[in-house]
Simulated scan of single mutants.
Amino acid sequence: MIPAAFDYTRPSGVDEAVGALRDGGEDAKVLAGGQSLIPMLRMRLASPTTVVDLGDVTEMRGVRDDGDALVIGAMTTHDEILHDPLVHEHAPLIAQATETVADRQVRHLGTFGGSLAHADPAGDLPSVASALDATFEVAGPSGRRSVPASEFFVDYLTTVLEPDDLLVSVRVPKLTGWGTHYEKFNRVAQAWALVGVAAAVRRSNGSVAEARVALTNMGPTPVRAYGVEDALTGTAATEDSLAAAAQRAADGAEPSSDPSASAEYRMHLATVLTRRALQAAGGA
């Protein structure tokens, strides 16, 4: 199909982009990588009055070291994430999950911030941001503010972003000395995850000192598996203890049933994939 007519603007800075969104009203849309928006335009599932193309906003690109954290620009592509040495050194979980995103062509165009702002519960990166306790820098007409990942995702395809807000960057704490792993199950290669698990484990003297686990596609937003984290912390990092903690993976989850999988099957997958992710991250 042919998209409905819309105005198009390509700002060169964050403030200019926020102004364009404000002027465009609540039906204005941001074009980041376009891997989600363009199909929606063509199918007329979205009919914006204005499309604000962020391709020239250089401030929103790249990865930089900021002391105890990395700051990743929202317009940094998946491919740039995969080849960034800082990400591999300090936030390998992001690289592990990004490697599973779609195919090479999509990874060259799709953006880190675009995936997070789109907030698809089957997307891989929202659960990773949740597991890493990331913080989102948001720019709006009233200035900039920081939003923790635990508050950023509100509902299905919905975040705290207002129509004239812009996700500028994501601050990710460095996990030095942690083991990480992203485990994903999909029916065919390059498909959305039926269920995914982002896991990070810090060991000390053979025991689990800290653990962070978040689930993909187990509810309308990323699901932080606090039950698993509580069950693991302070226990010996053995295969049995990791498997026992994984039994609590679906606590509080609200998976849906659809033609790809039933809610019951997703609950089962969450347990199996969490055990695998913990074993890989925890070294058991």
Rank of each mutant, 00 (worst) to 15 (best):
F112T: 00
P121T: 07
D164H: 11
S150H: 13
D133S: 13
G123W: 03
S150M: 14
R104H: 15
L116F: 01
A119P: 03
D124M: 12
S146Y: 10
R104E: 15
L157R: 13
R104D: 15
S142A: 15
L157M: 13
V106Q: 02
R144W: 08
V172A: 01
E151G: 03
T111I: 03
T159L: 00
D103N: 15
R144Q: 14
L157N: 04
A134T: 08
R104K: 15
E137C: 11
H108W: 07
R144K: 14
V101A: 01
F153L: 03
H108Y: 11
S115I: 14
F152S: 04
F112P: 02
P148H: 10
T135N: 07
E137R: 15
V138I: 15
G113C: 13
G143E: 11
L125T: 07
G113P: 11
V172G: 02
V168N: 04
A117K: 09
L109C: 14
V170P: 01
V101R: 06
R107W: 10
P163I: 06
S169N: 05
D120W: 05
G143S: 10
F153E: 01
A102F: 05
A139C: 10
L132I: 10
R144Y: 12
F136M: 14
P148L: 10
S146C: 14
D103A: 13
L161Y: 06
P141D: 13
G140A: 02
Y156L: 14
E151C: 01
P121E: 00
R107N: 09
S115M: 15
S169I: 01
R145W: 09
R107E: 02
V106D: 00
V147E: 01
S150G: 15
P121I: 09
S169E: 13
